[in-house]
């Protein structure tokens, strides 16, 4: 485990609803695992809030369990940076998705959305992701494309969109690879194809 050989990488993936971004992210993670022999980890941020979400989580879990690769599930809904000691430099970590994590950070404690709180949330999400990235072999982060519609009508939506856009910009800046998945087709937006 030499520090020099530890080539940490961040891979950012977004797409619209049902674009195939999660499947692509899992496939991408498995390819890295096969190539490097590292352990696959699924960082589950979802707190099941209704039967529909429970069902969706179960479907994703079944998909990961029935595949050829063995995934380890790590659950954490906020402050993911605190998980840093759970991973080592061989680990491949998949975080799906940033919007769920952001929702948890924003809504979990009934905070007033003042500038200080919003800045802290942005910092917590971004620095948490970068901490895990630096610790692990690779961190794959999935998020949602939700900024291509009017946001101005509702202050909550506007503030949320602004925060998510800023987080995405920071992540893309830090990412070694970034993909936009359109109808199941991953389009490489940054970096080189492996």
């Amino acid at each position: 485990m030499s520090v020099l050989s530890h080539n940490a990488s961040l891979i950012f993936i977004t797409g619209g609803v049902r674009s195939g971004k999660s499947s692509f992210a899992e496939k991408h993670a498995e390819e890295i695992a096969i190539e490097t022999g590292g352990q696959l980890n699924y960082l589950a941020t979802g707190v099941p809030s209704d039967p529909e979400m429970t069902e969706r989580i179960e479907k994703h879990q079944r998909d990961r369990e029935t595949g050829e690769c063995q995934w380890k599930t790590v659950e954490r809904s906020v402050h993911i940076g605190e998980l840093v000691s759970s991973f080592n430099s061989e680990d491949i970590v998949l975080l799906d998705c940033v919007t769920t994590l952001l929702n948890n950070e924003l809504f979990s404690r009934g905070h007033v959305w003042d500038n200080l709180f919003l800045t802290n949330v942005q910092e917590s999400v971004v620095s948490g992701i970068l901490k895990l990235k630096n610790q692990a072999k690779a961190l794959i982060v999935v998020s949602n494309e939700v900024l291509n519609e009017p946001l101005a009508g509702n202050e909550l939506v506007f503030t949320y969109g602004k925060l998510l856009g800023r987080i995405h910009q920071e992540l893309v800046k830090e990412a070694d690879q970034a993909f936009l998945v359109e109808a199941g087709v991953p389009v490489l937006m940054k970096g080189v194809q492996r």
Binding site: E145, G161, K162, L164, G165, Q169
Partner: peptide
């Protein structure tokens, strides 16, 4: 020169 993209995309 037309520059477009989603909100808060830089």
């Amino acid at each position: 020169h037309f520059v477009t993209g989603g909100a808060f995309n830089g």
